[in-house]
């Protein structure tokens, strides 16, 4: 199975399971920050790896990236990207104090990792129980830096097999009228070898 040979039906199926997973993740986030979290309809793209930083607003834009490996019946990565301002807002809202400047202290770092952990766990457990497969997140790792640099480490592993990455991307944002919005991107990056497992579980015919 290669990305290019996937049918529309299969792409839709992946989009749908990701949407359900994301719904659970958004509920978790919403409970954390105490406000409604809105989801955009997921975009599923087979993208040239080189173009990914552009999708995040440019390679030099500062972002917080949390990445977790997916272990279990299917392999892959989850990448959660918050623009710097959103990451800092999220931290200050969760910790109930203002962060100073564009610096992330240790407490801020673990807060973001924990957010990544909660979102990824909610996402994977919803997806796993839907598909009757076991999906477990690894411990979260964090980087706070230029988007290009944050993304390349995750994509490099994929690029050994192909120049294309299958990305299921969901944009989410919180919107309280009096508060600055928190935005983020959630990427599901299945390993090429695990795509078959996912599609079989989804039931999409090849």
């Amino acid at each position: 199975m290669t990305y290019a040979s996937m049918t529309d039906g299969q792409l839709d199926a992946l989009k749908e399971i990701s949407n359900i997973g994301m719904g659970h993740a958004a509920t978790a986030l919403s409970q954390l920050i105490g406000e409604t979290v809105y989801l955009r309809v997921p975009r599923i793209t087979v993208t040239d790896i080189g173009q990914v930083p552009e999708l995040l607003g440019g390679a030099e834009r500062v972002v917080a990236g949390v990445t977790l490996q997916i272990l279990g019946d299917a392999r892959g990565n989850i990448l959660l990207i918050f623009p710097a301002e959103s990451a800092l807002r999220l931290i200050s809202r969760l910790l109930g104090k203002e962060t100073e400047g564009m610096v992330l202290d240790e407490l801020g770092e673990s807060t973001l990792k924990e957010v990544g952990n909660i979102l990824a766990s909610a996402y994977l457990s919803a997806m796993g129980s839907l598909l009757h497969i076991t999906l477990i997140p690894s411990i979260p790792l964090l980087a706070f830096d230029m988007a290009g640099a944050v993304v390349d480490c995750v994509l490099i592993e994929l690029s050994q097999a192909s120049d294309l990455a299958l990305m299921v991307e969901t944009e989410f944002h919180g919107k309280e009228p009096n508060l600055e919005p928190i935005k983020g991107h959630f990427f599901l990056l299945p390993d090429p070898g695990s795509l078959d497992v996912l599609l079989r579980a989804v039931g999409g015919k090849e």
């Binding site: 930083p53 440019g58 390679a59 030099e60 980087a143 830096d145 290009g148 993304v151 390349d152 480490c153």
Partner: peptide, 12 residues
């Protein structure tokens, strides 16, 4: 004269 630029090198 030219300037060559590349952005956002991580492990690259």
């Amino acid at each position: 004269p030219a300037v060559l630029v590349t952005y956002g090198l991580g492990s690259c």
